[in-house]
């Protein structure tokens, strides 16, 4: 498999979903803290999608596919990649993020959003019978995640560490 060094980077901002099947594209969620990114990749069609969700559960009245929330965002992500031709049973699913940025302080109790985001991602994916093939979650460091459309490679960068594949 050819390694893609750098492609056309598509930034996936807070509360956004980006999808692509262009082999030169790289979907990137920069600086995830408590936010969670869910990446899906269909190896046959190369349809690739990345969600950057902020909060665990959608509030009453929010769009059932609203990408701001983990639960509705996953629903939106799946629908979008399926429209592009991905097949759910083939999807490689990975979850990154959900750090607790205030781990060492007294705010932990009140603001445990990272952990709640991870729990929501696991519960939603398991409810949809989607197996998570890899995770890099929790801890107290921010992460940048890249998902390469060409081959489905995903890597994670943490400040002060080597970028590593997931």
């Amino acid at each position: 498999m050819e390694a893609v060094i750098e492609g056309n980077s598509l930034a996936v901002g807070l509360g956004e979903i980006k999808v692509s099947r262009e082999p030169g594209d790289v979907l990137v969620a920069y600086g995830l803290g408590s936010c969670v990114a869910v990446g899906v990749y269909d190896p046959l069609t190369r349809v690739t999608g990345l969600l950057h969700a902020v909060l665990p559960e959608r509030t009453n009245g929010a769009d059932p596919q609203c990408p701001k929330y983990v639960d509705s965002g996953i629903a939106g992500l799946l629908q979008t990649v399926e429209q592009l031709g991905a097949l759910r049973s083939r999807l490689v699913v990975r979850v990154v993020g959900g750090a607790n940025m205030l781990a060492l302080s007294s705010f932990k109790q009140a603001l445990n959003i990272g952990e709640r985001n991870i729990a929501a991602a696991r519960a939603t994916l398991s409810g949809l019978r989607l197996r998570v093939s890899a995770e890099e979650v929790g801890g107290n460091k921010g992460r940048t995640v890249r998902l390469y459309v060409a081959n489905g490679r995903m890597n994670v960068r943490v400040l002060g560490s080597e970028t590593r594949d997931l």
Partner: peptide
């Protein structure tokens, strides 16, 4: 940390 990660705290809290 990364700016985005640091700001997630306030974003998450004002998200609602």
């Amino acid at each position: 940390d990364m700016v985005g990660a640091v700001l997630d705290i306030i974003v998450a809290v004002c998200g609602g």
